[in-house]
Design a protein around this nucleic acid. Sequence first.
RNA 1: GGCGGCGUGGCCGAGUGGUUGAGGCAAGGGCCUGCAAAGCCCUGUACAGCGGUUCGAUUCCGCUCGCCGCCUCCA
Length: 468
Amino acid sequence: MLALYDTAARGVRSLDVGQDRLFRLYVCGPTVYELPHVGHGRALLVYDVLRRYLEGRGVPVRHVSNVTDVDDKIIARALSEGETPEAIAARYEEEWWAASDRLGVLRPSSAPRATEYIEEMVGLIAELVAARVAYEAPDGVYLETGKVSDYGLLTPQALADLRAGARVETVAGKRSPLDFALWKLAKPAEPAWPSPWGAGRPGWHTECVVMALDLLGEDFDLHAGGTDLRFPHHENERAQASALGRGFARHWMHHEMVNAAGGEKMARSAGNFTTLTELLDEVDPRAYRLLVLRAQYRQPMEVSPAALADATAGLARLDALARRLLAPGGSAPGGSGSGGSAPGGIAADPAVLERFGACLADDLDTPGAAAVLFDAVRAANAAADAGDNETAAGLARAVEAAAAWVGLPLRGGRAEVPEAIQELVARRERARTARDFAAADRLRDELARAGWAVEDTPAGSLVRPSSA
RNA sequence: GGCGGCGUGGCCGAGUGGUUGAGGCAAGGGCCUGCAAAGCCCUGUACAGCGGUUCGAUUCCGCUCGCCGCCUCCA
């Protein structure tokens, strides 16, 4: 029912999922110190699709995703903007959820903040110190990675090589460059919490372990995040659990990054989008979802104005199908021939949904699933052209259901049409009936300038906002 | 420097050791339409280069070139 590439196993492996057991998912969330960018959007969408796939299969999912609200970058931002770190974190967390909502991403079951877990983190660090896998240095407490027997599970390269080439930051008292901070002693004016080692704040890698174990328990099903988190973040997370003999993630999933057009750096001046917030102001959020779906999650993906335009066009094709074959009664073109709304009671074509689901189950092959979707669109339109409304309706219903499954609601319904626009449409209809096509075309131009597109169908003229 | 990944038609993007190359966008031709729009039908000498393995490679192996990521900021 689901196979995913597992970073630890370095291959695609089946996951143990079923309707009778809770699927426990942990996704690394954001550090809230700036506006989310398009890459964050991809991350949100990839795991949203995974979750919707499972839930659509009837699998209950507990989805935990943290919010890092205490961190060096937040502190730096606060200093540069003359605000408190708390205010910075609160503001950008709000922006994060706003963008997530606009994308139509389901909120996690739990979204704990790091600052809500300080005591638990101190407790875990104390355990690590007691187990002698962590030690105190002048500026904090470090985990001694050399004492974790399976350190490097997620990291293909030999740790010796890794040590050799890396920028090595010399920290007095650190026993190995690979050792990482569990607790950072506070400098003056920095946010601080009490601890047995002095006032300070937790290192970044500890919150996820503590939250995952607390909210999901040991041996949870899947831990996910961007490839950039594979090392050191995820390696270090699991090192802590491993050092204490706790079972951690059974499966590790990493999605690839987003690139700008042609390797160009994303910049507003280049006409690219940099923040997700900006992007969502410019394009239909569903178009970005479709763009993300059309790339496999383990492949880098390009986000450019051209790519977004492409996705927008594809989305318009889906919406056009919904408009033609799924629109509720009323002004929908009815009857036989080239149009007709779906006859009631027609079920979604099961073969389409089956093929669609099979693609998703196969390492989240969303490009394949999209191909199934668009195949069905063509078949539905062809059936409708041939007057086979029953087949057309079944296929259209399947398209609608499949798209909705991955969080892509289609817009087939008539938009609210202002009275003035309706009047222009009516006048144009009268002109056409009178075969005064010059007048009809002038009215169509007028509607276009007002942002409305007209389509003449056997059942009458339809208008819609020209952007849709 | 080390490690990993990628290079498929105008663009995006799947996929496969073998007579017939998913899907989308764009383009050209046709049908439909008063004209459009939407839709349908048709149209594409692709797999970076060079070697190797093989009866046969785009698909496996090696090398070269190019691009990208990671090597304790990072989705």
